[in-house]
């Protein structure tokens, strides 16, 4: 696969430039899935571990790039943040007073609220 070579390494070997891999195990993947609020079965978890390791080991090649003195990118096209005037409902598309539209797609809308399973704080 020439492309893999172009990328500087063969990702299928799970190799990374620093010698070893920051590999994830089932417990880590389970923790990430929980953090991301995605329920995964044992079987799915087993399948995901090598997949994610393949990808993560491959992206770790970035570690070899010398980034000394380089700022992380903040704006891809030089541009500054515009600020909005403090006016209520200036544009109806971003204003309030549209409760019906806001609730129109809700799986459980009751008495003008969104309903969710009871939360105990």
């Amino acid at each position: 696969m020439p492309l893999a070579l172009f990328m500087g390494r063969d990702f299928r070997l799970g190799f990374n430039g620093k010698g070893c891999c920051m590999s994830v195990d089932t417990a880590t993947v389970a923790r990430i899935a929980s953090l991301a609020r995605i329920k995964v079965s044992e079987g799915e978890l087993e399948a995901m571990v090598p997949e994610l390791n393949g990808i993560l080991n491959w992206v770790e090649q970035l570690g070899e790039v010398n980034v000394e003195g380089v700022e992380p990118m903040t704006a891809v096209i030089p541009n500054t943040l515009r600020l909005r005037a403090d006016v209520v409902n200036a544009d109806p598309l971003t204003g309030g007073g549209i409760r019906d539209a806001v609730l129109a797609n809700a799986p459980a809308a009751e008495h003008g609220f969104f309903g969710v399973p009871k939360v105990i704080e």
């Binding site: 953090l35 993560l56 992206v59 570690g63 790039v65 980034v67 380089v70 992380p72 990118m73």
Partner: peptide, 25 residues
């Protein structure tokens, strides 16, 4: 899952910040 992992505590700089620096390059 990949996105969650690379942003998670302890990995953010190694992955995300590094990637944004390479993006600058």
């Amino acid at each position: 899952l990949i996105g969650t992992y690379v942003l998670s505590a302890g990995f953010y700089d190694a992955y995300y910040t590094q990637a944004q620096k390479v993006r600058t390059l």
